[in-house]
Design a protein around this nucleic acid. Structure first.
Lengths: 233, 233
DNA sequence: CAGTGGTCTAGACCACGGT
DNA sequence: CCGTGGTCTAGACCACTGG
């Protein structure tokens, strides 16, 4: 008896994955049916189903009723990006985090913002400038607009001690969002706050957040020169 | 009878999600056990389990044996990024794709590359420069190194008609990779190929790919000025 | 129409981790 | 110890879709 444990869905998943990597099942190949695999591995069809469903979620295989399961033609098409709060990012590299509020004012939403997130022309928004430091060196410049109608309590928050990102996270338990990444040239303001020459290339991330169809906030985060965002898959 | 269908795992998932959004279950709150939820929804525990497992995968809730299930303190921390092949990206915007090989030569891996991907100092690599155009306007400049030991067949490929990315995809059914995003200033070569002033800020993506622990390729993709990479979550 | 995946069930045992 | 989630099973019915 060399086998102590039963065949689990992870065993099935890994073995199927191995056969795909080995090209035992090349791209586009038709896999055995769930029933056949269950028989081969000596487990229930539900176990095979879960294994294959995970691979399908990861884009490794394509499944269609009646047609069966095939190895995907373009393997690995998704990467997961961890969207960390700035403070976490900084603490993870063992640096000391410091936050500073630069500006806070209530304004009528500018036209570009209203159109960007879908606001009425006369909507009131809170406009903020913040800085985040790692070991007292500039890490990220944050420019944010908050839809006051969506978050009335924001009027009470002065954001002097805690940044708007963390404040909103504790007020808005869940929401959907759109993120954009791009490269920009430092303008005079960025140059000053991030201590880099004007025109220096900077990595920027924009995010619009909605809560139940209603726009909540739009934020533009500009990172220090040389910042790199990494992930694996 | 207003109810035609049974309660499915999606119904459970959506209802739980709704209660979290409503803050009926605020951040950190302890949810009922699977058994209790199954009783409430009138379904099997396995159904509740699958619903909650999906939410846990998405980072919405945290589950621990014995302790139970809690609403996560930092909701939504992952975004899925679709990593498309350049040609697909271009065709998706209804533009005509054109590819051109700029340079192809076999060299000994430079020290920085060997250390970057983990190669022996004297490893032979194929070094390529390619351009990708959308409607004949520069879209992406691709600089790539391929580990010949990992992909011996690469010696046969001239890459004049089909780009190395698509060629490798058809040769390497699956692999794991590391991606990095950053902003750079256009050097003279970029400036020339992407038709932008030297020093212009450009969005760049680097990717290292392994196949069964062996480094396969390292690629640096530089996009045209103004390029934005977007995703939702 | 019939084959294949999609999902549900009721019950069971296991593994982790507070108490 | 023992409650809670993690997983498996054997069987069932449904839904989509290719022939």
């Amino acid at each position: 008896m060399t086998q102590r444990k039963k065949t689990g869905f992870q065993d099935v998943r890994n073995e199927v994955l191995r056969r795909i990597e080995d090209r035992h099942w090349p791209q586009g190949a038709l896999l055995p049916t769930e029933l056949e695999l269950a028989a081969e591995f000596g487990c229930a069809r539900a176990t095979v189903n879960r294994a294959l469903r995970e691979l399908a979620d990861r884009g490794i295989i394509d499944r269609k009723r009646k047609s069966g399961t095939r190895v995907a033609m373009t393997p690995v098409k998704q990467a997961k990006l961890d969207i960390a709060v700035v403070r976490q990012q900084i603490e993870e590299i063992n640096a000391t985090y410091r936050y500073a509020l630069v500006m806070r004012q209530q304004i009528t939403a500018p036209a570009w913002l209203a159109s960007q997130v879908g606001l009425q022309a006369d909507a009131q928004v809170l406009h903020l400038h913040c800085m985040h430091y790692a070991d007292n060196r500039p890490f990220q410049f944050e420019e944010r607009w908050i839809n006051i109608a969506a978050v009335p309590e924001v009027g009470e928050a002065d954001f002097k001690a805690v940044g708007p990102n963390e404040w909103l996270l504790s007020e808005m338990p869940f929401s959907n969002a759109e993120i954009t990444f791009l490269a920009i040239a430092a303008n005079d303001q960025m140059s000053e706050f991030l201590t880099c020459p004007p025109g220096a290339p900077l990595f920027q991330m924009e995010r619009t957040t909605w809560f139940q169809q209603q726009p909540v906030t739009f934020v533009r985060m500009t990172f220090h020169p040389g910042y790199r965002m990494s992930t694996q898959y």
